[in-house]
Design a binder for these strands. Structure first.
Length: 233
DNA sequence: GGCATGGGGACATAAGCAGT
DNA sequence: ACTGCTTATGTCCCCATGCC
């Protein structure tokens, strides 16, 4: 039987409210009382009951990092996002869960509608992404990694893929290369058609290619491939 | 079948007490 | 008056149970 706040309070000789003050740092508690409570927690192996806490505070303190099922996206390319988000959530006294859902948004609506999470970070965003519309309509805070066509009123962080493409082309051209292959991710993968980074790097490529019309020998070549190293072979 | 009640664990907070 | 704490109460949501 897991120890509760009541057990800790009894062991430390204080009230439940005082244990709560220490746990949440909401009111000053003398160092000696704090020490006794922390010692009791350690002795009893106390762990917060997250369900009870969520019930009382009406907050689950869980943030879902939502990404679509995408068979050929390797974990390597997403790992940094996962780790960074988990660390940030932890620093804010929240838990992060990685929640793969279908791109049609049905599972996302269910997840959010059931109040299972306090917030959503949505990644692998398409330019016309039905999931964003669903989140707009629900009363749950959310943010995007990536962007849709219309970002009015939606918090997001993003990579400037157009500028990235420009820098890549200029860098290679500066090195004297005149035939440049561009290996993009595959839109053949279910759910990845219209995937923002694919479309926008493509746009950056063609846009910069046009700008460089006065340099006819610079001829970027687009080629799709699988979103993993072997795709560029 | 429909309704009322209780239980679960933690939080929030008002009111109050004892000591300085 | 202020500090540090206790006590009491209400609240959250859902399910099980009991009663009409």
């Amino acid at each position: 039987m897991a120890a509760t706040m009541k057990d800790v309070a009894e062991a430390a000789g204080v009230s439940i409210a005082t244990v709560s003050f220490v746990l949440n740092d909401t009111k000053p508690v003398t160092p000696e009382t704090r020490r006794r409570i922390e010692q009791a927690m350690a002795d009893l192996g106390f762990r917060r009951n997250m369900v009870a806490r969520a019930l009382a505070s009406r907050r689950t303190r869980i943030i879902a990092l939502v990404c679509p099922f995408a068979a050929d996206r390797t974990a390597h390319s997403l790992k940094d996002f996962f780790i960074g988000a988990a660390q940030a959530a932890n620093e804010a006294d929240h838990h992060l869960v990685i929640w793969p859902v279908s791109s049609d948004g049905e599972a996302l609506a269910s997840l959010v509608g059931q109040k299972l999470v306090d917030g959503v970070v949505l990644m692998e965003v398409g330019l016309d992404d039905v999931r964003v519309e669903i989140l707009r309509q629900l009363d749950t805070p959310f943010a995007l990694i990536g962007r849709t066509r219309d970002m009015a009123g939606v918090p997001y962080v993003d990579i400037d893929f157009e500028e990235s493409m420009r820098l890549c082309i200029d860098h290679l051209a500066g090195l004297g290369h005149r035939r440049i292959a561009f290996v993009n991710g595959s839109e053949e993968v279910p759910g990845m058609a219209g995937f923002g980074p694919y479309v926008r790097t493509e746009g950056g490529l063609s846009g910069h290619g046009q700008e460089a019309a006065d340099a006819p020998d610079r001829l970027p070549l687009t080629r799709h491939g699988a979103g993993r190293p072997a795709g560029g072979a």
